[in-house]
C-alpha cells in the first residue's frame, strides 16, 4: 500500500530506504535532514541567560505591575510621613491648640484649617501616622511570630500537636477580631496599660489564627516533598528541617497574608480608637480625630475628611500591595 507519509512537495524529504526482501509493506521510510542543533542529545549544558528563582521571578513580574508600583509609592509616602512628620508641617499637633482658632478656615502655615479644639489639622494628620503604623507593624510582627510557630509546628508534626493547635485556632476564629478586641480592651488591666504595645498584643491574640492556618497549609504541602525526606536521611533534626527547608518554602503565602493583615490591623486600630477604647487620648491617632470631628461634620468637614483620607490611603496601599504580591508569589494565581 502506498504511503503518503511525506507529501511530494515537501523539501524536507530524506533518502528513501527500501526494506529488503521481507513481507513488510513497501512504505516510505522518511528521514528528516539533520539540523545543526539536533542529533547531539548529549548532556544539556546550556543555561538561561540570567539566573532566576522565585524571588527574582516575582520581582521581575512585580516591576511591570502598575498596581504594585502605585501601592509601593503610596506605602513609601506614608512611611516617610510617619518617620519625618516635621518635613510636612512645623506646627505642633497638640501643644499649640488655641480655642480662638476653633474650626478655623485654612490660613497661611495651616493649609488644612483647624479642628474644633483649634489644633492644626495638617499637623494632627501627619503626626497621627506613626501610631497607626506602629500598631499595624507591631500586631503583624506578633501574628507572624505566633502564627508561624504554631502553624508550622501543627503542620509539620501533625498528629496530636496538630489536633490541639487546630482546635485552639478554631476557637479564636469563632471570635470576630473587632469584637474580641473590644471585649479584651475593656478589661481593667488593659485599660490601665492602654498604649501601642497593649493594642498590638490584643490584636495579635485575635489575629494569629489566620496566619497559623496559612502556614499550616503551606507546611503540609511541602512536608511530604522528597527533598524533606532527603534532609531526614542526612540526619538533620526535625526542627532544623522545619526552619531550614519547610518554612522558607512556605514564605510566599505568609508574606502575602502578612501584608494584607497589616492593612486590617490599621483599620481595627482606627475603629477601636474611634470607639474610645483603642489608644489612650494622649496618643495621636486618626481614629480619635475622626471620632472628635463627628459633631462638626456639617460646619467643619475638613477635620473629618483629612484623617479619613490618610487612613484610606494607608490601608489601600497595604491591601493593594498584598494583592500584587499574591499575584507574583502564588504560582497558582499567576496568569502565564
Amino acid at each position: 500500500m502506498p504511503d503518503q507519509n511525506s507529501t511530494p512537495d515537501t523539501a524536507a524529504r530524506g533518502p528513501v530506504m527500501q526494506p529488503s526482501g521481507r513481507e513488510v509493506p513497501v512504505a516510505e521510510h522518511f528521514v528528516a535532514p539533520v539540523l545543526d542543533d539536533e542529533g547531539r542529545a548529549g548532556i544539556e549544558t546550556q543555561l538561561a541567560d540570567k539566573p532566576s528563582n522565585l524571588w527574582r521571578d516575582a520581582w521581575s513580574s512585580l516591576r511591570r505591575n502598575p498596581i504594585f508600583i502605585i501601592s509601593a509609592l503610596l506605602m513609601l509616602f506614608v512611611l516617610f510621613v510617619a518617620a519625618f512628620p516635621t518635613v510636612f508641617t512645623s506646627a505642633s499637633p497638640d501643644s499649640q491648640c488655641t480655642l480662638s482658632n476653633a474650626n478655623g478656615a485654612p490660613t497661611a502655615g495651616h493649609p488644612l484649617g483647624f479642628t474644633n479644639q483649634g489644633c492644626d489639622i495638617l499637623a494632627r494628620v501627619v503626626h497621627g501616622a506613626s501610631a497607626s503604623l506602629l500598631v499595624g507593624f507591631g500586631a503583624t510582627l506578633g501574628v507572624l511570630l505566633v502564627g508561624i510557630l504554631l502553624g508550622g509546628l501543627a503542620g509539620y508534626f501533625g498528629g496530636w500537636v496538630d489536633a490541639i493547635v487546630s482546635r485552639i485556632m478554631d476557637i479564636f476564629f469563632a471570635v470576630p477580631l473587632i469584637l474580641g478586641a473590644i471585649v479584651l480592651m475593656a478589661v481593667p488591666v488593659m485599660r490601665q496599660n492602654a498604649g501601642i504595645v497593649t493594642l498590638a498584643i490584643v490584636l495579635t491574640i485575635f489575629g494569629w489564627p489566620q496566619m497559623a492556618r496559612i502556614t499550616r497549609g503551606a507546611v503540609l504541602e511541602v512536608r511530604s516533598a522528597e527533598f524533606i525526606t532527603a534532609a531526614r536521611s542526612l540526619g538533620m533534626g526535625k526542627l532544623s528541617i522545619l526552619f531550614k527547608h519547610v518554612l522558607p518554602n512556605a514564605a510566599g503565602p505568609i508574606i502575602v497574608v502578612a501584608t494584607l493583615s497589616l492593612g486590617i490591623f490599621i483599620v481595627v486600630e482606627a475603629s477601636l480608637s474611634f470607639l474610645g477604647i483603642g489608644l489612650p487620648p494622649s496618643i495621636l491617632s486618626w481614629g480619635h480625630d475622626i471620632s472628635a470631628a463627628r459633631p462638626q461634620l456639617r460646619t467643619n468637614p475638613g477635620a473629618l475628611f483629612w484623617p479619613s483620607l490618610m487612613l484610606s490611603i494607608t490601608v489601600l496601599s497595604f491591601m493593594m500591595l498584598g494583592d500584587a504580591l499574591r499575584d507574583a508569589l502564588d504560582p497558582k494565581g499567576r496568569t502565564r
Partner: peptide, 14 residues
C-alpha cells in the same frame, strides 16, 4: 524519522 516499525528499529537513519 518515520517508517515501518521493524525497518525503523533495525535500521534507524536519523
Amino acid at each position: 524519522e518515520s517508517g515501518p516499525a521493524q525497518a525503523l528499529l533495525q535500521n534507524p537513519k536519523h
